[in-house]
Design a protein around this nucleic acid. Structure first.
Lengths: 350, 350
DNA sequence: TCAATATACTGAAACGTTACAGATTGCCAA
DNA sequence: TTGGCAATCTGTAACGTTTCAGTATATTGA
């Protein structure tokens, strides 16, 4: 059953996977020459290079990852660090697919490194750095003063953040312009005559919470509308919590006639809460909501919708990390995604 | 900048990561002894073993993955093979989290290996096997006669399928009992007086399409209801397609008064189509739908819901693969998840 | 007492790769 | 002719690990 070779040389017939040694034997060259020929090193004769590459292609040679990794330290791995308690209707799959698209034609593999909310978010990063498990890292849930970004910068490992930081440190990122989103949302609500607006914001602590809150505030004063505070819940809260808090809010004398919501799942809860309070979407209140997959319009056609493309985010993040690994300047690997227009499926005038 | 050691021995002070050599030096033992001591080999003295393990823990020794992999061929990697064009509201993140949970306390890493629908689904599998990139594989979208399962069985790589096969070959799987789901769904609809039922089924070709269709048919004859054929669309079709086909169906003279739907996103489209035709959920028609995240009840409280837990599926699949890798009999690593009861949030009698 | 055996440990080799430090050849200038 | 040099190619060592084939010491049996 276990038919191992007794000879040291495997230059005979049946082999497992071809290695450099196999190629060296087939071409009559040395292992070193083959190695260099495959990576287009300058001191290899043009014909030799072609010959080696041809044979390599023919027999389907693939470099052994472990060999490369052991020798060079290069893992050819990108790690996507994810929070395990991500909410419902998660965008995670979109990001993964976006990343996959980009690394598909590279030798890179994507590993998913999870952490639970109870853990220190720095734990998985430390693990990756200490064990040298990846050449590059992608993180999300970015904070203005992000310990993970600082740590990776200090340890010299390339990374990209989904969302910006605000520490005066420069690193690649991709972000959705949530300030612009909030501004457009408020303008839209104002244009429909809504004057008392509430914001269902991202969780406090994350950078885009600030962006969203600021955009909301800026636009409020621009259009001369007022805010009904609604900061007891964020989109990170459970469906039930958002729903009950919303219902409470809507039963007060002073209640909002318009909402800006930063996430689709939260919007479902928001609508439920509004209806629990006996009010009607499109008549008593309007909502502008972000979504990452195209289904809110099915939920309630009165919803006003702005799309955020997480697949694009994944692609951009992957491109950024690979760019940094490839030696590009981190400052040149930053991108901001501008929100599209607010989409309406049925007018609130019905 | 590049302060490499000139000495061959790194037994001096500042090092990067500790290796077996480091431990050997610190303990005064040979590298071999240290290696064996760490894995509780029998021929190591009890005290030596303890001493080595203590020191290893103290200095935070972590075996170098590349070294192990090169020497032993063990990758300590599980690959999750995913279709990149997965629909909206994807369960992918749940599966990933489920897998992560299980491998968290193991040396395993999870890599995501994507393939697009245009590709041969066998491609990623071949890649994994040929390059020896993983110790175990998890696949979904399983077919009765699944070329991937056959291929992996032939090549002796442990795997688990999400969904069963029907080839007379034995391998680990986890599946949701879709036959039971369809039966319960039909019974429920029948108990509400619905007699003409339609099925929004999984895509033809996948094993659970058959299970669902059979369960549906079995229960129909059990309760004496009739079927309104609706096989022009499956849950794999786009939201728009399902919606328009549903509307067409519901405008016919003979239209269903009950639906069984195999996916939440499809149900959204189904409801939209029904309402496009001017009919009302809970009055003209009832729907029993599967869902994997808890939000359909927010969409329409009249919906009847059965939950499918994909996180559990991920965990079970991971456990199975690890079990097989660990030498368990593949036949002992099969599990079937029984659907919970049909959940109602508001009675259709309203 | 001697040999046999068990116990505890060890060095060398190998996995596949790349970097370093040559080695060989041919050509040209002096 | 000689030396120098460019152009190609090559062997060896090393990355960190495990396995193989030992070695050394203590213990046992006769």
């Amino acid at each position: 059953m276990d038919r191992r070779r007794t000879e040291k040389n495997d230059e005979t017939s049946a082999q497992g996977r071809p290695t450099l040694k196999t190629l060296a034997f087939m071409t009559g060259l040395g292992v070193t020459t083959v190695s260099r020929a495959l990576k287009d090193a300058p001191e290899i004769g043009a014909e030799t290079r072609r010959r080696v590459q041809l044979v390599a292609k023919q027999i389907g040679y693939r470099p052994n990852r472990a060999g490369v990794r052991l020798r060079t330290g290069k893992t050819n791995v990108i790690s996507l660090v994810l929070n395990t308690e991500q909410e419902i209707m998660s965008f995670v799959s979109d990001i993964i697919y976006g990343v996959s698209e980009v690394i598909a034609d590279t030798p890179y593999h994507l590993i998913v490194t999870p952490y639970s909310r109870s853990q220190d978010p720095l734990d998985p990063i430390r693990y990756l750095v200490e064990t040298g498990s990846a050449d590059g890292v992608i993180i999300s849930r970015t904070q203005p003063n992000d310990a993970r970004a600082r740590y990776m910068l200090e340890h010299g490992i390339p990374f990209a953040t989904h969302g910006r930081t605000d520490m005066g440190l420069v690193h690649p990122y991709h972000d959705f312009d949530n300030h612009a989103f909030a501004v457009e949302a408020v303008r839209r609500l104002a244009s429909m005559g809504r004057r008392k607006l509430a914001l269902l914001a991202p969780p406090v602590g994350l950078t885009y919470h600030g962006h969203t809150v600021n955009g909301f505030a800026d636009a409020l004063s621009e259009v001369g509308a007022s805010e009904v505070p609604f900061s007891t819940v964020s989109i990170d809260h459970s469906i039930e919590q958002i729903r009950t808090r919303t219902a409470q809010l809507m039963r007060r004398d002073i209640r909002p006639d318009g909402f800006v919501s930063s996430a689709a799942a939260a919007t479902l809860a928001l609508v439920a809460g509004i209806e629990d309070a006996g009010l009607k979407l499109g008549r008593d209140v309007d909502i502008v909501s972000k979504q990452s997959s195209d289904l809110l319009h099915l939920f309630r056609p009165e919803l006003l919708i702005v799309n955020e493309n997480f697949r694009l985010a994944g692609s951009e993040l992957a491109r950024s990390v690979l760019g940094w690994i490839g030696g590009a300047a981190p400052g040149s690997l930053q991108s901001l995604s501008v929100p599209g227009e607010v989409l309406a499926y049925r007018r609130s005038t019905d």
